[in-house]
């Protein structure tokens, strides 16, 4: 089973989010997930009267997508976290922690903790020890 979601592209993202916002949908969160070595997905979960609607955005790792924090201020924290974990750059983040929201070291495409997940299970992850 998979989560029902409208597939969306990066260029239509902000317009779609604005539409949902205007229709009274509340941003619950965004979930990022790694698909394979090159690609990942971000799911935008919106809620209205306990119903969820989702947007699915595929993007290459380390890519750049527009930030929705301009429309929904609440998204800034989520986007910063995704930047931390996956090295995705968000264009127009209202408060930009530069990839240091949680981690001390900045995440990059090659060095973002959550991107090593799919390399192979059980593979040891080198800790970011400074």
């Amino acid at each position: 089973m998979s989560v029902e979601a409208t597939v969306i592209t990066a260029d239509k993202l902000v317009a779609e989010v604005t539409r949902l916002h205007n229709e009274g949908w509340r941003l619950v969160t965004m979930s990022s997930v790694e698909i394979d070595a090159e690609n990942m997905e971000i799911l935008y979960h919106f809620d209205k009267d306990l119903k969820l609607t989702n947007l699915r955005l595929s993007l290459p790792k380390g890519g750049t997508i527009p930030s929705i924090s301009g429309v929904l201020f609440g998204a800034f924290l989520i986007e910063n976290e995704i930047r931390d974990q996956f090295g995705v750059t968000f264009d127009g983040l209202v408060i930009d922690y530069q990839g240091r929201l949680m981690n001390e070291c900045t995440a990059t495409t090659s060095n973002s903790p959550f991107c090593r997940l799919l390399v192979k299970h059980g593979m040891t992850v080198t800790k970011e020890v400074k």
Partner: peptide, 18 residues
């Protein structure tokens, strides 16, 4: 697999920080 591919946890306080 016996390992989950992704466990994404969105907690309430995370949403309450903004």
């Amino acid at each position: 697999d016996k390992f989950m591919q992704r466990v994404r946890i969105r907690t309430p306080t995370f949403a309450n920080i903004p």
